[in-house]
Write a protein that binds this DNA or RNA. Sequence first.
DNA 1: TATGTAAATGCACATGATTCGCATTTGCAT
DNA 2: ATGCAAATGCGAATCATGTGCATTTACATA
Lengths: 138, 138
Amino acid sequence: MKEIQTVWPVGVKKTKPRACVLSVLEHAESPLSAMDIYSRIEKDTSTVWLSTIYRILELFVEKGVVVKTTVMNNEMAIYELNHYQHKHYAVCVSCRKIVAMNNCPMEKFVPKLADNGFHVLGHKVEMYGYCKECDPNP
Amino acid sequence: MKEIQTVWPVGVKKTKPRACVLSVLEHAESPLSAMDIYSRIEKDTSTVWLSTIYRILELFVEKGVVVKTTVMNNEMAIYELNHYQHKHYAVCVSCRKIVAMNNCPMEKFVPKLADNGFHVLGHKVEMYGYCKECDPNP
DNA sequence: TATGTAAATGCACATGATTCGCATTTGCAT
DNA sequence: ATGCAAATGCGAATCATGTGCATTTACATA
Ligand SMILES: [Mn+2]
Ligand SMILES: [Mn+2]
Ligand SMILES: [Zn+2]
Ligand SMILES: [Zn+2]
């Protein structure tokens, strides 16, 4: 496994389980669930308990190095390194593959809300459909 | 409680628990969770078990009379009558109130997806922020 | 209108993701 | 090297949701 090194979050004790989780996330090609991370650790390094992974992810999210999301009407949460860029995803309804979206529909959009005093802080956009491999009518 | 009467879904046996659930949804001002529905039934009519409510909701969704959604990174699912109109919501991060959005940013938008063969079927848009009552800096 | 039958419900218990508690271990300041 | 607060291993709890099965109910038919 290649050695990529992200900046270690400040004020966070450097332990083996934490390094494992961060390493897995550094090598991930798309967001991973806690269970995904668990599986990917076992292979080459020491085993880390699932509850510990949850605790580590919570810490990393709090420190801002990791972003937590969910896609497709609540299932498992997924986690990825925080690249400090505004992002959205498309999800394949068949194989659940996650595909990045490189633009955002909210840029030039003013929402009309029923509560006209609503103070918008952010948004979430998600596309769903078939990825190239799963499309029944391409 | 006023008598509103939606069309009863075709081929669905008319039972008391089902009528209760539908009635609660007819009188709801915004989407409700299964537990919300459970609470609102107890008051005036007979009690319906929570697992039964889940079964009824699943049936109604299947029959197309009810729409199931989730808001704000997975929690409880929420349900509302299907009014056959394209909708999105804003959610208050403080009180969790749900506010309808009356326009859609995806209308004139072409997503740029990493998988260029992705076949888009639909989308989900969600705003979050403070409702009028909860806004700390109005 | 009485009755038979498949389907719906009450109720208890299973599930699966996530969290919590506590004894043991570990990283790091001294 | 040593001590101590903080992190982890491990089990057991939680919480929304789903399942299994005996009993009850809606509705078709006589
Ligand atoms: Mn956006
Ligand atoms: Mn839309
Ligand atoms: Zn796919
Ligand atoms: Zn609010």
